[in-house]
Amino acid sequence: MASAGLQLLAFILALSGICGTITATLLPNWKVNANTGSNIITAIIQLQGLWMDCTWYSTGMFSCTLKHSILALPVYVQAARTSMVLSCILSALGICVSTVGMKCTRLGGDRETKSRTIFAGGLCFILSSVSGLIPTSWYVKEIVSNFWDPTIPEHNKHEPGGAIYLGFISTMLLFVAGVIFCTSCLKRHQGPRHYPPKQQGIQTTQSENSAGYNLRDYV
Score class of each variant (00 low, 15 high):
31 K>Q: 14
92 A>Y: 13
89 I>E: 10
192 P>H: 10
18 I>T: 12
192 P>F: 06
132 G>S: 15
63 S>N: 11
73 L>I: 02
52 M>T: 03
10 A>W: 01
190 Q>C: 10
173 L>W: 01
80 A>F: 00
160 P>W: 15
192 P>S: 09
116 R>P: 00
56 W>F: 09
152 I>E: 05
185 C>G: 11
2 A>E: 14
2 A>K: 10
142 E>A: 01
211 A>V: 05
71 L>A: 10
65 T>K: 14
180 I>D: 02
214 N>G: 05
154 E>Q: 13
178 G>C: 12
104 C>F: 14
77 V>S: 07
195 Y>D: 14
124 C>I: 00
70 I>A: 11
18 I>Q: 09
140 V>P: 01
214 N>F: 03
46 Q>V: 10
54 C>K: 11
196 P>V: 06
5 G>V: 02
160 P>R: 15
57 Y>C: 04
63 S>T: 12
32 V>L: 05
112 E>V: 14
95 I>P: 00
198 K>Q: 06
67 K>R: 11
57 Y>L: 06
85 V>R: 00
51 W>M: 00
157 K>V: 08
111 R>K: 09
157 K>S: 05
19 C>W: 01
157 K>E: 07
58 S>H: 04
62 F>R: 12
90 L>V: 02
47 L>S: 02
190 Q>N: 07
103 K>I: 05
139 Y>R: 02
152 I>K: 15
100 V>Y: 01
136 T>E: 08
157 K>D: 03
143 I>E: 13
160 P>N: 11
63 S>K: 08
169 I>G: 12
188 R>H: 12
20 G>A: 11
117 T>I: 15
219 V>D: 11
21 T>R: 03
9 L>H: 00
4 A>D: 11
196 P>D: 12
214 N>P: 00
96 C>Y: 09
124 C>N: 12
214 N>D: 09
198 K>E: 02
193 R>N: 10
163 A>P: 05
117 T>A: 14
22 I>R: 04
202 I>P: 00
105 T>R: 03
118 I>A: 10
161 G>Q: 08
144 V>M: 00
143 I>N: 08
217 D>S: 01
182 C>G: 10
193 R>F: 07
215 L>F: 03
52 M>E: 12
141 K>I: 04
110 D>G: 15
44 I>W: 07
167 G>W: 00
102 M>F: 03
199 Q>L: 13
100 V>T: 04
178 G>M: 13
142 E>M: 08
156 N>Y: 10
29 N>S: 14
51 W>Q: 02
112 E>R: 15
16 S>E: 09
200 Q>C: 08
22 I>S: 14
81 R>M: 10
217 D>L: 04
202 I>M: 09
169 I>F: 08
10 A>G: 11
18 I>C: 06
180 I>F: 09
51 W>N: 05
5 G>Y: 02
